[in-house]
Design a protein around this nucleic acid. Structure first.
Lengths: 143, 143
DNA sequence: GTCAATATGTAGCCGAGGCTACACTTAGTC
DNA sequence: GACTAAGTGTAGCCTCGGCTACATATTGAC
């Protein structure tokens, strides 16, 4: 139980700048997956994946390109830079830890998939570690 | 050209970027807490809480007011409507469930506070229920 | 009551992330 | 080679959530 007012926003750091980082992570993750699935990743693939217009994807890809996470030439596929690949790997790993954890504590696959996507960007390394450990403990006990 | 094929923005809804719902939840939660702590909630209180300018708060409060979650008159305090209070209670409960859960699985108070804020908006009722149950189980075992 | 400090409002700017409408390229098919 | 469908780009508009600069209101001390 929570005894007294939890330290809800104890400090400040209302870094709503995380938002663009989230977008970047979602995109590089998607680019990596789509490239594996289809051999290459096109704008329209991302548009379908995120259920947004190709215009939105196009603009976002431009921004990511300026940030050095992806490369793309006119009418060409979207590809990850070395940095983009690294970020994609990290994001995917975090995603998996969260997803496996949710399954381990009894959440359905469907809800786990949705919630994992929502929260994967907000996990500190510490929390991630706790989740991974608990998942390990639970699945070892009940395999 | 009747593009019939691409019903891009149907189906998968706007699960993406219901970011404004998060903002609403953060605000009503903060208004409720500040009102309890100080007797009333002013724009400047919210500005300090979220570490943003009073202008940002002022605009957001206007939007929330149009959505029927808060009321405020010029130079007056920000107050929750009935709907706002209900949302605040729900948000706070969710926040507590997540926070307590993180503590229960071994996350430090500091990290738990930060992460709870990040993820509380992305939890399905199902996941929330699993977390509450597991918290109960753990804290009963090791009180 | 006056005055300064604090709080709030308004104007105007920005970037991210959405959209539609329209123009153009690429890739197949005949 | 020509035509068409799908993919991509560009222009222009929107909202949300940020900001600074400046104007006005409220409040407290004197």
């Amino acid at each position: 139980m929570t005894k007294k007012a939890p330290p809800i926003s104890d400090g400040h750091r209302r870094t709503r700048r995380d938002h663009s980082r989230e977008t970047a992570e979602d995109y590089v993750e998607a680019v990596a997956e789509i490239t594996v699935e289809h051999g290459r990743c096109r704008v329209v693939d991302l548009a379908r994946r995120f259920a947004v217009s190709h215009v939105t994807v196009s603009k976002t890809v431009s921004r990511l390109s300026e940030s050095g996470l992806v490369t793309s030439e006119p009418y060409g596929p979207v590809e990850l830079t070395a940095r983009g690949q690294r970020l994609a790997r990290e994001s995917r790993r975090r995603h998996e830890v969260v997803y496996d954890f949710l399954l381990a504590i009894g959440v359905s696959e469907k809800a786990a998939a949705i919630d994992a996507e929502g929260i994967e960007h907000h996990m500190s390394p510490e929390t991630l570690k706790c989740m991974a450990e608990l998942t390990e403990k639970i699945t070892r006990k009940t395999p």
